[in-house]
Computed example of a mutant assay.
Amino acid sequence: MTAAEALLSAKRLVLRRFRSEDARAFAAYRSEPEVARYQTWEPPFSLAAAEEFVREVGSLDPAEPGWFQYAVEAGGVLIGDVGVHLHHNRRQADIGYTIATAHQGNGYATEAVGRVLEHLVVERGLHKVSAECDARNERSAKLLQRLGFRLEGHLVEHTWTKGEWTDDLLFGLLAREWRTIRHER
């Protein structure tokens, strides 16, 4: 990978645009039942759907409103993705993330999401970043809290997905909170 391909880099990770050759690995980790469990898609995630996704997101501009998906790479291997939905006011964003099962528990999600937060809040000057997760997804909620997000709401039986009503947890992080957390570390 060339330096020009990396949009963001962290200690052990590169966050870059998706490339066509990522489709197979993307489909593989999104097909893992444990990865898909609290997500909106059903496994298996087809190669055709992955190819379409990679084609669509590969040309998007992360500075423009809407969703942008960072490919998360460790040691030359695609291990997950971080999605950012930039609001039209360009001062707020929503964030989501997925890490392949084989790479969970190594701090990669914390490192990737932390680097994206640093970019959004410090480098781009956003005011607030929000996230939401299924209330049963304790690992995701703990990750957000570890990064300094505050629980802002619990929506009871809010989302109909995979044949059941699920509760959603809403999290928020203000720029001033991120700067304080950053300086305390």
Rank of each mutant, 00 (worst) to 15 (best):
R176H: 12
R182H: 12
G163D: 08
I95Q: 04
Q39E: 15
N89Y: 07
G66I: 09
V84L: 12
N137L: 05
V72T: 00
W165E: 08
E52Q: 15
R139T: 09
L170S: 09
G83Y: 08
S9C: 06
A131T: 03
A135Y: 05
F26V: 11
A23Y: 04
E34H: 10
T110W: 03
E64F: 11
A27Q: 11
R90W: 04
S59G: 13
L47Q: 08
F68P: 02
H87F: 14
V82G: 02
E138Y: 05
G107Y: 04
L13H: 00
A141P: 04
A28F: 04
W165T: 13
L60W: 05
R17W: 13
G148K: 00
E51S: 08
L170W: 09
A6K: 03
Y29G: 05
N89C: 12
Q145M: 10
T40Q: 15
L147Y: 01
R30M: 13
G105E: 06
E132I: 00
T110G: 12
A6Q: 10
V77D: 15
W41L: 15
L117I: 06
S130H: 01
L47I: 14
V129D: 02
Q92F: 10
A63N: 12
E73P: 01
H103K: 07
G105R: 01
R17D: 13
L13N: 01
H158W: 08
L144N: 06
R185F: 14
A6M: 09
I99E: 03
V116Q: 04
L8M: 05
